[in-house]
Design a protein around this nucleic acid. Structure first.
Length: 445
RNA sequence: GGUGGGGUGCCAGAGUGGACAAAUGGACCUGACUGUAAAUCAGGCGCCGAGAGGCUUCGUAGGUUCGAAUCCUACCCCCACCA
């Protein structure tokens, strides 16, 4: 690890964000006493960012905390094309309407995260070359400049500066060329040219000298820097972050259930928090570095705790709180943390509807007619199936036999138990649970 | 277009007339130990059934047989090599 003069680069380096870069020393020099503009592009493939996108977003956040000005670029134009990097098959193209919805959703999230990023942990804010950027992060859509470019202009002015020879040597393209199955379309092949043009445009129009991104963006970033050199004879820079995987080798932010989103309507803050709480000890230190603004000493202390085998889960709780707080706000993080305490606590009884509804607000719920609980009541297995906690009566049977069925946090022993109004945990609610962590709230009406 | 190989449960992959609801591994689920972690151990993993047991599955549709994932016929799809 080199010693850096600029606060931001030493910070990024310490936190493990620097995987590849065009020229570390030059970048360091550039960042020492001048505020620069930098950018990272985000593809609008969905209406929400996911945990995987958080990595480059954190880079922007750190830059901002060190007094630099991030620009968030959404790929309104490139999103129409689809980036082949890291993809093994051709992507479906989005129509413009869907794209617009995605752009709105994503830009909103980025802005909020970058806003909170400068509000959290003031004690670790960087020594800024300029005043801290305030207000929203400038958000640009590359459709604004790429859209105006005609195909002929493109070929004449830009295409000249691209050597196909070097383009096919880029990993993102080569992988696809060697893959006989899929190949690569001309459209996707051109993606790199567009992204390079973005960098060129931003360099000229917005004085943007640095591009950051995930490691899969390396080829695209250098293509941009090359274009700037050829056209202007000037030097622009790029930094990529390493690819982060979980201890079991999966992509960050993917679970068996699917993707962890930043959009609270897709992944509730509680589930988001839970995702981080459940991280493996082995990956937690790295996550603390990259996804929190905690001071180095604190991170090192927690790392030592884990290495000594003394962690009882509090490190993950800290991590979860910090990340949730950044993405969803302090209140949401506090709430998720409190809800977790109750949910992983003991028997639920003698509570009011209000209390229960609050704690379980993020948990899936079902409404049931009151008459179904009167008289005989409803058989417990049917309840498991109706709430989707189990896929069939057979599965519910197994679950209960194995001791994984809980009603109001109490283990169900009788396979043929019938649930009646006597089982209500509060005035009108029941809490059904499958295994350790799957809750379902049943509301009776 | 020609030739060869193949389609089995979430995935990989055995099975090639009865012992097959289908080996084995992974994923996944549950329990124990813990910390909502890892590792380990135990159990489970088509549907119905308290159970005995029953029912529906091996690309699709027919057929042979007492009996088919296994044999035959047609069709669909995939792969390899050749052109």
């Amino acid at each position: 690890m080199a010693d850096f003069r600029s606060s931001i680069l030493s910070e990024l380096d310490w936190r493990g964000f620097v995987h590849q870069s065009t020229d570390e020393e030059a970048i360091d020099e550039l960042l020492v006493d001048k505020r620069i503009n930098l950018y990272c592009g985000f593809d609008p493939t969905a209406s929400s960012l996911q945990v995987g996108n958080l990595l480059p977003l954190m880079m922007l956040a750190f830059f901002r905390r060190h007094g630099h000005q991030p620009l968030a670029i959404v790929g309104g134009a490139t999103g129409l094309i689809g980036d082949p990097s890291g993809k093994d098959e051709e992507r479906n193209l989005l129509d413009e309407e869907a794209l617009q919805a995605n752009l709105d959703g994503i830009s909103d999230q980025m802005d909020r995260v970058l806003e909170r990023a400068v509000e959290m942990h003031p004690e670790t804010l960087g020594t800024a070359p300029g005043n801290l950027p305030s207000g929203s992060t400038p958000l640009l859509n590359n459709a604004d400049w790429l859209g105006e470019l005609s195909f002929l202009e493109m070929l004449r002015d830009i295409g000249k500066d691209f050597r196909v020879n070097s383009m096919i040597n880029k990993e993102s393209v080569r992988d696809r060329l060697e893959e006989r199955e899929q190949g690569i379309s001309y459209t996707e092949f051109s993606y790199m040219v567009l992204q390079a043009y973005d960098f060129y445009h931003l360099y000229r129009e917005h004085d943007c000298q640095l591009q950051v991104g995930g490691s899969d963006q390396w080829g695209n970033i250098t293509a941009g820097a090359d274009l700037i050199r050829r056209k202007l004879g000037e030097t622009a820079h790029g930094i990529t972050a390493p690819l982060i995987t979980t201890a079991s080798g999966e992509k960050l932010g993917k679970t068996a259930e699917g993707t962890v989103w930043l959009d609270p309507d897709r992944t509730s803050p509680y589930e988001f928090y839970q995702y981080w709480v459940r991280r493996d000890d082995k990956e937690t230190p790295q996550l603390l570095r990259m996804f929190t603004f905690l001071p180095h000493e604190e991170v090192e202390e927690m790392t030592a705790t884990i290495e000594a085998g003394d962690n009882r889960g509090e490190v993950q709780e800290k991590l979860a709180w910090e990340v949730t707080s950044l993405v969803h706000g302090k209140d949401a993080a506090d709430f998720a943390s409190r809800a977790s305490d109750v949910l992983y606590g003991e028997t639920i009884e003698g509570m009011t509807d209000e209390e229960l509804a609050k704690i379980f607000s993020d948990v899936p719920s079902t409404t049931l007619d009151r008459d179904r609980l009167t008289g005989e009541g409803i058989e417990i297995r049917d309840l498991f199936v109706e709430t989707d906690l189990q896929s069939s009566r057979g599965a519910a049977k197994r679950l209960i036999r194995q001791g994984g069925g809980y009603l109001n946090n109490e283990q169900i022993e009788d396979l043929r138990y019938h649930v009646t109004t006597d089982d209500l945990a509060s005035e009108s609610m029941l809490v059904l649970r499958s295994g350790k962590k799957n809750y379902h709230l049943v509301q009776v009406e």
